[in-house]
C-alpha cells in the first residue's frame, strides 16, 4: 500500500433473511485513494473481509442502474460516488430506502418495475402510422426530439423512489421514474397513446400524489429531473380535466 493511502470507516447495513431478525451494522476500515468509488470500497470489503456481503452491480459507469444505495442517508449510485467526497467523515452504506430489504444491500425492486411496465411505456402509433414500412422513419426534428429526450435518460436505478416521501407514505403512488416515462412517451411526436395512458396520469396515485418536494430531481444521477416531468404531466392532466368538463367523453 502506498504511504499516501488513507482509510475510512465504512459501515454497511447487513441483513441475511435466513439468519437475522432485523438488519444490523458492520464496520470496516477501507483504504482509499482519490479515485475510489463506493462500489470499489464494497469490492474491497467483499474480497478481503466479508465474501458474503451481497450488492447489485454491473457496468461501473453509471448507466446500468444496478447499484443504487443510500450513502449517509442519501440515494446514490455506488459507482458514481467517491470516498474522497466524504473525507474526514465516516461513511454509512444502506440499501435503497422505501423498498423492502431482500438481503444486505439488495432491495426488492419489483414494485418499481411493475409500475414502469404498467403505464404503457412504448410507442402507440395512430392508425395512419401503424404499418409504416421498414425503409422509412418517422419525421422527428431535433426540436421534437428535445421535447422528450431528457426524460428518456432514466436508468431505472430507483434513487428517485428512495428520495420520495410521498412514495414512502403511500406505496401506491406510481412514482417519479414511471410518471417521467409516461410523460416521455406522451410528448414523443411518434406516439398517439396519450389517451390510453391518461387514466394512470389522471388518477390519485398518478401525478396527483406528488407534492413537488423536488428531492427526486436532486438525487437523480442522470439529471432526468423527474419532478419537472411530473409538473408538466400535471399540466397535461389538468388540461385534460378541463376539456373533459366542457365536453365529457361518456
Amino acid at each position: 500500500m502506498e504511504a499516501t493511502q488513507k482509510t475510512m470507516k465504512v459501515t454497511v447495513l447487513r441483513y441475511r433473511p435466513e439468519q437475522d431478525k432485523e438488519p444490523w451494522e458492520q464496520t470496516f476500515d477501507v483504504p482509499y485513494h482519490k479515485d475510489t468509488s463506493v462500489l470499489e470500497a464494497l469490492f474491497y470489503i467483499k474480497d478481503n473481509f466479508e465474501p458474503s456481503l451481497s450488492f447489485r452491480w454491473s457496468c461501473r459507469m453509471a448507466v446500468c442502474g444496478s447499484c443504487g444505495m443510500m450513502v449517509n442517508g442519501v440515494p446514490h449510485l455506488a459507482c458514481k460516488t467517491f470516498l474522497r467526497d466524504y473525507e474526514g467523515k465516516d461513511m454509512k452504506i444502506e440499501p435503497l430506502a422505501n423498498f423492502p430489504i431482500e438481503r444486505d444491500l439488495v432491495v426488492d425492486l419489483s414494485d418499481l418495475i411493475e409500475k414502469i411496465e404498467r403505464i404503457k411505456p412504448y410507442i402507440i402509433p395512430d392508425a395512419k402510422n401503424a404499418n409504416m414500412p421498414l425503409n422509412k422513419n418517422f419525421k422527428q426534428t431535433p426540436m421534437q426530439m428535445e421535447a422528450y429526450l431528457q426524460f428518456a435518460q432514466c436508468i431505472n436505478c430507483g434513487c428517485c423512489y428512495a428520495a420520495c416521501p410521498q412514495y414512502k407514505l403511500n406505496p401506491k403512488f406510481i412514482g417519479p421514474a414511471a410518471l417521467t416515462l409516461l410523460y416521455r412517451y406522451n410528448v414523443d411526436n411518434r406516439d398517439a397513446g396519450a389517451k390510453l395512458r391518461a387514466p394512470f396520469l389522471n388518477s390519485e396515485e398518478g401525478a396527483w400524489s406528488c407534492t413537488f418536494v423536488g428531492y427526486c430531481s436532486e438525487v437523480c444521477p442522470k439529471h432526468v429531473d423527474p419532478s419537472s416531468a411530473i409538473q408538466l404531466g400535471k399540466k397535461m392532466s389538468a388540461t385534460d380535466y378541463v376539456f373533459n368538463m366542457i365536453k365529457p367523453e361518456h
Partner: peptide
C-alpha cells in the same frame, strides 16, 4: 440491418436526427 434499425426507430428509439427530421 437497415430494416431492423428502422424497426427500432418505429418503436421509439431516439436516434439522433438531421434538421429535416430524418435519421
Amino acid at each position: 440491418a437497415p430494416e431492423e434499425l428502422y424497426q427500432l426507430e418505429h418503436w421509439g428509439c431516439p436516434w439522433s436526427r438531421k434538421p429535416n427530421g430524418d435519421v
